[in-house]
Simulated assay, not measured.
Amino acid sequence: MGCTSSKGCCLCCVPDAALKSCGPAVPIAKEITNGYPAPPGHGAHTPAHPQGLGEAIQTRTRCISACAVRCIHDHLPGHRHDHQRAPAKMREEEARKWLSVKRKDFARVRLVCFPYAGGNSNFYKTWDVKEAEMVTVELPGRNARYNEKVITDVYLIAKKIAAALAGLGYIESKIPLVFFGHSFGAIVSTLVAQILRNQYNYTPKHLVVSGCVPLHLRAGRPKFSVANDDELVSSLLDMGGITKEMARNRDVVTQFLPALKGDYLAVDKYVYHEAPPLDCPILALGSDQDLRVPQHETEEWARFTTKEFESRIFPGGHFFLKPLEKEVVAYVSSVIFRDLTGPGATDLPGFILFDPNKK
């Protein structure tokens, strides 16, 4: 793009929270919020772009406004970053804290499972998807990471997971990744897919979202993090996330509440940014008694893909996955392996690697 600083980042970058990864800021930081009109030809700025950005940049830098506007677009979450910067890759030791792997020889896909709010990798420990290596996400503040501080920023969580996937060599692997996320996990898995597309030039083979309002419909929803501890426990009990015995056990409640409250705060802080749809099929799952996710909204996930979209409604409430585990696993398996059967299937990545000693 030209007009770059010595650190390789555009001089028109703005030190906004969403743009911190861009690098050094320039002296226009204060001027851009003072109400300058948008430059001719650029139309009205969206709420994500400070009003007057074009004129401020024109007066305080040598960049042309078109370059500046494109730079800001590139740094918003979900948008492509055109700068020549190597994507983050986490050290393997650290990556294994984020990703728990149940090794399976001759796997045709790796199924990466993202937990619901307050959840952990144990939720998926009984899942056994034929010919899929199970990779479960373990967030700070739970299980072996219990003493680590919970992260309350979904974008930061997604960046960390993307870097962990790269750190374990999964981005370069010939075994394709499939993402499965339930509720909070659906938000995070979608953001991880966008980050991998934008920064790592990688797209998962399939994205499965479950029990979650589509990202563009989250604005204006009731806040979860404002409830007191008793209300949170009661709400989780009503949804089927915990049993009555667990709700009455204060030691158990004390263990899961910090992670639950942190994840709820992350959801409440989340701000949707429009992004290009993903170039992978999406499967959206819902249930007929989930008060948080109306059935008709499940179909709205279709806008997040340029490929095939499929949805299915199961009986039950928000945590329908647990009582219907066998049915859900069987259905998800049939969908994600559908294009690995029939004519031409041997040309797909899953058939190339049948050597357990290779990544």
Rank of each mutant, 00 (worst) to 15 (best):
K326V: 14
C67T: 13
L11T: 02
L232D: 09
S65L: 07
R145C: 07
L196W: 02
V154G: 00
S210P: 07
Q194K: 08
F309T: 03
R80E: 10
E274N: 10
S65K: 07
N201W: 03
V112S: 05
I151P: 09
E92S: 15
G316P: 14
F337S: 03
A330V: 06
G119L: 10
S234W: 04
Y36F: 15
I32W: 00
I64T: 08
V188F: 09
Y146D: 00
A227H: 15
A302E: 14
R197F: 05
E131V: 05
A44V: 07
L278S: 05
P277S: 06
P27R: 04
R218G: 01
C280W: 02
V267G: 00
S100H: 15
H83M: 11
H206R: 06
F106D: 13
E297C: 11
P214R: 01
R60C: 08
K223F: 08
W127D: 11
D339S: 13
P315R: 14
C280G: 05
R108T: 11
A44F: 08
R218S: 01
K307W: 05
N357I: 02
S173D: 08
L237C: 09
D290F: 04
E94T: 12
R108A: 08
N228C: 15
Y170G: 00
G23Q: 06
P276R: 05
F314T: 06
K205D: 02
L353M: 13
V233L: 09
G41I: 02
F314H: 09
L168E: 01
G78T: 01
R221D: 04
S210A: 10
G262Q: 07
P214D: 02
Y200C: 07
